[in-house]
Each structure stands twice: as structure tokens, then as C-alpha cells.
Amino acid sequence: MCECCSGHPDIYLPQMATITKRRMLNGTELFLHLEMDSGQDLRYKPGQFVEVSLAGIGEAPISISSSPTQKGLELVVRNVGSLTKAIHKLQVGDKLGIRGPYGTTYPIEEAKGKDLVFICGGIGLVPQRSFIRYALDHRNDYGKIIVLIGTKCYSMRLFREEIALWQERKDMTVLETIDEAHDCWDGNVGVVTTLIPKIENELPGSLVLICGPPIMYKFVLISLAEAQVPEENIYVNLERRMKCGVGKCGHCQINDKYVCQDGPVFRYSDLALVPEAI
């Protein structure tokens, strides 16, 4: 190897981590708690993602769901392809490869002293949970915490026990809705935007953080525009094909931005000239 390269690490080389807890959150979403085999915690911040690999099967970007205030790393893996299917078969004690953390973070510093409104659709709750937990662990640093959660159907709801605990807290507001009515559900029915009027008065001055399926952003952003939330106060967490995670492979590019480096968390006002974003 040449001299100038010998000092650099291999950015494509995963580090091994061991599964310490696993449970299904619903029929398709697997929750994993991991510890790095190196014994050192990944130094990540809320909003970032890791590249998860099972050598031989493949590698994919997965949002971090835990807060850096806790030990270990928590991920939620949806069973959608070969890799995630294989990950679903893993048990406690099995190993995964991890690269990262990568990408931008939620504005944890800038948000201090401000009210926070999280709007989460489906597995969009997964990365948002990182910042929600972080904010709860630094409760005095932040103003009001409002969480809106929309899920397609009753059986797909994530983190039910945790949400129930959040709902009991006096220092945060959690509103939940499901798209399709269900016998066991007496709460809100309708898409997540139907919750927005309920907290409309809280929106001015709040930082609004959005994460959900591609189709959701457009509708939520229209509602926020109607409520006159300035675009500088809105953050979106985008999903793309972050194949390499290090700004090289080109797959996650939206116009001139690399979601793996310039995102996944973007201030919405920074996306004015990025028509491919939303």
C-alpha cells in the first residue's frame, strides 16, 4: 500500500456489533438493541443513521432510534428485502456489521429553549424517537414537546408501551391517529395531518420535525404553510438509497445534495432549490 493511504481507515469496513435485545414491534418491524464489540459506544447524535450489514447478504442504511443519552444502539428494521429478512432471523447474541454514524443530526443545540413538534408517519417515528428521548433526557433544555403519530392501521403501531408512558407524562403531549378505523381503537382516525388542527396554536414559534413515508411530506408541509409556520422552523428527515453512506456512490443524491452527507435531516428552507427532495 502506498504511504499516503496507510494512515487512513477503510470507510467501507464495518465494525461488528452484537444483538443484546430483540423484539417484534408489530408484524413487520423488528426492534434491535446492539452493543459494539469494540466496547466503545458509537458517537452518534439524534437523526443520524448507520449502514447495517450482514456479510454475504448485503448492506443498507438504517436510522438510529435510540438516544445517545442511553447505552448501546437501537435500530428498527422493517422486513422488506433480502437483507432485512435475514436480519429478522437473527437472535440475541448474533452479530451485525455497522458503519457510521453518518449524516446530519436534528438541531439539538438550536432547539434549546424552543417548543418542539414532532410529526411522525409510520416508521418515521423510528428516527424521531431518538430526538424525542434525547429531549426527554434533557427535559429542562427544551420547551413544550408535542408528538403527533400517524400509523396506517392499528396492528402496525410502533413502540406502544413507550407511547403509553409518554402519554402519561405531564411534560409532553402525544396525539396518535390511525388511518383505518379498528374495533380496538377509540382514538383519532385519519391521516396524521388531521391531528395538526388540534395543536395549531402551538405551531408558531415551535420547531417542527417531520419524518414519514414520501407521500406524507407534501401534505404535512401544506398544512404547516397554512398554519404559517416559517420554513426555517421546519426540519424533514428524508429517506433515499444511501448505498455507501459516505457521499461517493451517488445513489442518494437529490439535485446537488447527498442525503447521506447533507441529510438525512434537512432544514426545510434549505431545500427551496432542491425540487427532488419532497
Binding site: L13, G56, K95
Partner: peptide, 17 residues
């Protein structure tokens, strides 16, 4: 080639240059 590996196990960096 970037890496060699044991299936579902650890990887090793490969420099082909």
C-alpha cells in the same frame, strides 16, 4: 473488491491496487 468476509461474520479490507 472492497472486502472479503465470512458469511454473516467479520469483514477484512482488501486493497487491490
Amino acid at each position: 473488491t472492497l472486502l472479503e468476509f465470512e458469511v454473516c461474520g467479520p469483514c477484512r479490507s482488501v486493497q487491490e491496487g
